[in-house]
Design a protein around this nucleic acid. Structure first.
Lengths: 151, 151
DNA sequence: TGCTTAGGTTACATGGAGGTAACTATTATG
DNA sequence: CATAATAGTTACCTCCATGTAACCTAAGCA
């Protein structure tokens, strides 16, 4: 779409004043929403199966999140009045189109896990050194005021 | 539909069992993190300026989120011991690389706001009709068991 | 002396997100 | 009659994320 990111300037005002944008972003960025959408990315699933695949989600949150996603037009729901009742969920065209940016975000996370993890270790050990170096006082001095080249 | 997304299958297990992935995803998907990263996308900013541009953020959350992002290696911090103290924040190479998937996600949201909004109106009005249609009882019957074409 | 600035930290209070568990309906089966 | 399965809903409770506001440091200046 925007090969070199000149769109950034246009994103800011939208993030600033647009409540709806923020609202939708919160929803699609939500922990359970992401999990459900990615899980539905391979095709429709029934409630129990979806719960089984979304490790850690409670019945309550699955049901709630599904209703939100259905309301927002990203997921469809199909109930078949069989004996113990069969309900299927799947991605709408809208939900499917979300799958792409979402997948690239999750992909970014997976690609950069190591780097983030080592950044944390690095940061934490610097903090420790800074604390042990000057006793109890003067911790107000920022320990990383130099070496900001960031590679 | 998903011929161009063969990576999905590999994302699921990572989302299921990997605590770190989920943790990082929560961080980069966080409301304030997104705002800060997008705002820093145009270049480094000082604390107050960043706060001014990130409408609605409190000093506390800005400071906290910046510390998290710095710890995760996405943002650098440069303090200059001037008279009232000058601190600049900017994106590291890692943070900059996040800008791309994040921008495409925010772009998706902006492109599909209308559709989501109308989906909500549609859903809510259907609910209303379903409620007024059958008085007080029998609301247990799923109102949308037919017409699932999703368009 | 005390007000201002930048850039925070800390204590305190609270709302709401989310977990747990019980309850619902329906039919088949033992 | 009780139990099981699917697909939820509801009540209840707790804890954490976040907002508010006060406080901190250091220097300048009126």
């Amino acid at each position: 779409m925007d090969q070199s990111l000149p769109a950034q300037g246009r994103l800011q005002p939208l993030l600033e004043d647009c409540t709806i944008t923020r609202q939708i972003l919160d929803r699609v960025g939500d922990k359970w929403s992401v999990l459900i959408i990615v899980n539905l990315g391979n095709g429709p699933l029934r409630f129990k199966e979806l719960q089984r695949r979304s490790a850690g989600i409670s019945q309550r949150m699955l049901s709630q999140t599904l209703r939100f996603l259905e309301r927002d037009g990203m997921v469809w729901r199909k109930a078949t009045p069989t004996v113990p009742l069969t309900v299927e969920y799947g991605l709408t065209a809208l939900g499917d189109s979300l799958l792409q940016p979402l997948t690239s975000l999750v992909g970014w996370v997976n690609s950069n896990r190591e780097e983030v993890t080592s950044a944390r270790i690095n940061y934490d050990s610097r903090l420790e050194n800074a604390i042990t170096a000057d006793g109890l006082e003067e911790t107000t001095a920022p320990p990383a005021a130099e070496a900001i080249g960031a590679e």
